[in-house]
Amino acid sequence: MMANEFLFETVNLSKHFGALAAVDDVNLQIRRNTLHAIIGPNGAGKTTLFNLLSGNLKPTSGKVFYNGNDITGQPIHRMIHIGIGRSFQITNVFPNLTVFENIRLASQAMEKGNFRFLTDASRLKKCEERAWAVAEKVGLKEKAFSPARMLPHGDQRKLELGMILAPDPSVLLLDEPTAGMAAEQVPELIKLIREVQADGNKTVVLVEHNMNVVMSISDTITVMNLGKKLAEGSPEQITSNKEVQTAYLGGLYEL
């Protein structure tokens, strides 16, 4: 059964913005428990594809399957309950709430009791414990009570990761997790992503610009260009692919 091998599958997925086909007839299969990277030059449609996978955008045509079920057009707030969590390229947190509260809210969404409106939120013991565990995992335990907006950029990226780890989804869609991070912080974050993926039987899909990162951690790489899937394969296959080199370097260097 295909449903077992591929966790995520898109069938002829297209998204048009007016005349622009940002994502054009893409068939993408993402294997269970792998780390799948999507790369491509600027404007290749990576983030749009991502938004289609996570339900933030509705496709113009085509379908998205998750675990063999059609999830096209599911409301955004259902996605995490299905098991799909996503992080954002531009840090997207609750700026005036504390780090801990940010993570706690993320885990609270999965619990019952969201509508108990007179008991204290700290009574939801499971959320509290989960939030502390995640805060420790992403290394923000010491800063748990400072407002999210006061965090340096690198820590905000960690918080972003923490907020999608807290509900414990089966798929993590990470949109440029290292964007804007200081170079020395990147390996730490990558190690973390690898750990999470390895010990939790999770599937990770990430968009990334940092080639060192992509080549070192991915199991499979999909290269996109001009809204289409250009190539797919292991890091070795991708590095030696002529078409990919052309897309990245431009036709000027063609021999």
Binding site: S54, N56, P75, I76, H77, R78, M79, I80, H81, R86, N92, V93, F94, P95, N96, L97, E101, R104, L105, A106, Q108, A109, M110, E111, G113, N114, F115, R116, F117, L118, T119, D120, A121, L124, M163, P167
Partner: peptide, 27 residues
């Protein structure tokens, strides 16, 4: 006590960033 309750926390989250609150799985 409403503001401190789970429901109230979500309301505050909606004020801060509704899109993200939705992404977290709150209707």
């Amino acid at each position: 006590s409403f503001v401190k309750s789970p429901t109230g926390r979500v309301c505050v989250a909606i004020r801060e960033n509704e899109g993200r609150a939705m992404m977290l799985g709150f209707n």
